[in-house]
Amino acid sequence: MKAVQFTSFGGPEVLHVVDVEAPHPGPGEILVRVAGAGVNQLDAKIRSGAMPTGKPAPFPLGTGLDAAGTVIGIGPGVDDVAVGDIVFGTGRSTMAEQAILTQWARVPAGVDPVEAGGWGVATETAGRLLSELGLVEGTLLLSGASGGVGSALIQFAVARGLTVVGTASAKNHDYLARLGAIPLSYGDGLVDRVSEVAPQGIDGALDLSGAGVIPDLIALVGDPAQVISIADFTAPSHGARVSTGVTRTTEPRDGFAEAVALPHFALAVERRFALADIADAHRHAENGHTVGKLVVTP
């Protein structure tokens, strides 16, 4: 089968499509024929070597963390899906014609499996962040809200009854408003702009972009413990928190279940790439300002 691998850390040019043997699902795993796989910022960080593991990399490495497709193999201990089911979820080396998923949920009826290929990481992260923040009412501020995680967060938070203020480029404001958020531009003067549209105050803030806004978010919330970042690892030096998969306190499937339960949940797909164009997909992701998700189709 065809899969994307790299044999050294570096820029997108280190990614290549190669022929490899199809993987076999182990205990608690499933194998899917990939319809679509999401491109995440974390993929680029791993590929570049910016996410050191503390031990030598076992090259060659695959890339990709989430995908959707048809179940074609089931590992020992799995009893909640059958061959032929269409699922989305997270796993490993998902930029391939076939991939292992370690967490999954069924793709809702009527949803394009290609689009659902980008749901896994975004919905897991959104569910985890809302759980860790613990807001049950009030106003939530999202910094960098137009990407996949932000898009999922807005839909989850609005469904929970929260008011959402989201920052993004001006060209993406209509998109945020359609999802149910109050859109604002980021940059200098953020505190004043947020205070103007949310005079009732901000009860919690999530930094999704790592744009150096932690001090502003703390100033708006008033409590550093109610500010969480997934992209700025200096946040703890300000008293705020960092959330990663390593610090996860919820099951990934919690976010999956929330997405499936929401009527009309969707993540916009800004662009689809062929597997052979994976380097271009990584470049696009690293440029930022993506609306919704980027998806690769084998």
Rank of each mutant, 00 (worst) to 15 (best):
residue 202 I to L: 12
residue 136 V to N: 13
residue 178 R to L: 13
residue 200 Q to T: 15
residue 292 G to R: 02
residue 83 V to K: 03
residue 97 E to A: 12
residue 106 R to D: 00
residue 54 G to L: 11
residue 65 L to Y: 13
residue 41 Q to F: 13
residue 122 A to Y: 06
residue 285 A to I: 01
residue 95 M to Y: 15
residue 269 V to T: 13
residue 37 A to F: 10
residue 60 P to V: 06
residue 241 R to W: 11
residue 279 A to M: 00
residue 222 G to F: 13
residue 131 S to Q: 04
residue 204 G to D: 09
residue 206 L to C: 09
residue 32 V to S: 02
residue 284 H to M: 05
residue 73 G to T: 02
residue 145 A to Y: 06
residue 75 G to A: 06
residue 73 G to F: 05
residue 64 G to C: 04
residue 283 R to L: 08
residue 176 L to T: 06
residue 252 P to W: 13
residue 130 L to I: 04
residue 298 P to V: 02
residue 28 G to C: 09
residue 66 D to R: 02
residue 42 L to D: 02
residue 98 Q to H: 15
residue 82 A to W: 00
residue 200 Q to S: 15
residue 277 D to Y: 00
residue 134 G to L: 10
residue 42 L to I: 14
residue 177 A to I: 11
residue 216 D to E: 14
residue 118 G to N: 11
residue 188 D to P: 15
residue 128 R to Y: 10
residue 119 W to L: 07
residue 128 R to I: 00
residue 109 A to C: 08
residue 18 V to L: 06
residue 117 G to M: 08
residue 233 F to V: 04
residue 36 G to S: 10
residue 240 A to P: 07
residue 212 G to Q: 07
residue 239 G to Y: 14
residue 129 L to W: 04
residue 54 G to Q: 06
residue 54 G to I: 10
residue 70 T to A: 09
residue 98 Q to K: 14
residue 225 A to C: 08
residue 286 E to G: 05
residue 253 R to I: 14
residue 103 Q to G: 00
residue 197 V to P: 13
residue 132 E to P: 00
residue 89 G to Q: 01
residue 73 G to N: 04
residue 131 S to Y: 12
residue 191 V to H: 10
residue 7 T to Y: 14
residue 27 P to K: 05
residue 107 V to G: 04
residue 31 L to K: 05
residue 121 V to E: 03
residue 280 D to L: 09
residue 97 E to W: 10
residue 57 A to E: 03
residue 146 S to K: 05
residue 25 P to H: 05
residue 93 S to T: 09
